Simulated scan of single mutants.
Amino acid sequence: MTYRADYLPTEPTRSAVEAMPGRVLLEFGAPWCGHCQGAQAAIRDVIARMPGLTHLKVEDGKGRPLGRAFGVRLWPTLVLLEQGQERARAVRPVTANALHDALAVASPPDH
């Protein structure tokens, strides 16, 4: 999957996300968040470097259970899952290289 520009219309459940096969990148944020908007170029670049990745852009906020289930406190927060297990996390990434380094810990180069 490629970079997803829009937030999902409906928030998935944690069990649905954990049941997804392969690598899933959850991006928690809000459309009006300046930090989220500023990180989009870095996120887009890193997603292009990680083939086979499923990108889910989840709008977070009060009353949103998925973000609470993952302990999200700042936006954007990116959580990399592999086979339903959290492998890496990046909070408020600024550059593509910093984000890639944070997420690459979980992903061998041959992925």
Rank of each mutant, 00 (worst) to 15 (best):
P21W: 04
V94T: 15
A96F: 06
E82C: 09
P9H: 09
A41G: 11
F28E: 02
D45C: 00
L26D: 01
E27F: 04
Q40E: 15
G84D: 11
G61K: 05
A98S: 13
P21H: 03
T10L: 06
A16W: 02
Q83V: 00
V91K: 03
L25N: 09
V91R: 01
L81S: 10
G71Q: 04
R64W: 00
A98R: 12
R4H: 05
A69E: 15
V17I: 14
P12H: 08
P76D: 09
Q40P: 01
A30V: 00
T77A: 07
R92K: 13
A98T: 11
C33W: 03
T77F: 02
V105F: 01
L81A: 12
A106G: 15
A48D: 14
R23F: 09
W32C: 08
A42T: 11
C36I: 04
V105L: 13
Q85Y: 00
L25W: 11
L26R: 08
L81P: 01
V94N: 00
A90Y: 06
P9G: 10
P93D: 08
D110E: 14
E59G: 08
P93S: 06
R14C: 00
G67A: 05
A69P: 04
M50G: 04
V24H: 02
L74E: 13
D60E: 13
L53M: 12
P93N: 08
D110Q: 13
P9F: 04
A48F: 00
L80H: 10
A5M: 00
P65F: 03
H35V: 12
H55N: 05
V24Q: 06
R23D: 10
V24S: 02
W75R: 03
R14G: 06
A42H: 05
E11A: 12
W75F: 11
P12A: 09
L25Y: 10
R92I: 07
E59Q: 15
K57V: 06
R49K: 14
M50V: 14
L78A: 04
R4N: 05
E82Y: 01
R68S: 12
P65G: 05
D60Q: 09
D60K: 01
G52R: 06
P93W: 07
A90E: 04
D6F: 00
L103Q: 11
I47H: 10
C36K: 02
W32V: 05
E82I: 14
F28Y: 02
Q40N: 09
K57N: 12
A104I: 04
A102N: 06
A102M: 04
T95Y: 05
R73H: 03
L81C: 11
A42I: 06
G67H: 04
Q37E: 11
Q85V: 15
C33G: 07
L80Y: 07
H100V: 00
P21F: 03
R89I: 09
V17H: 02
C36T: 15
F70D: 06
D101R: 13
S107R: 14
R68T: 14
L103P: 11
A96M: 07
I47C: 13
L66Y: 07
H55C: 08
P51D: 08
L25D: 05
A41M: 07
A98I: 01
T54S: 14
R89E: 10
A19Y: 07
G52H: 10
E18N: 10
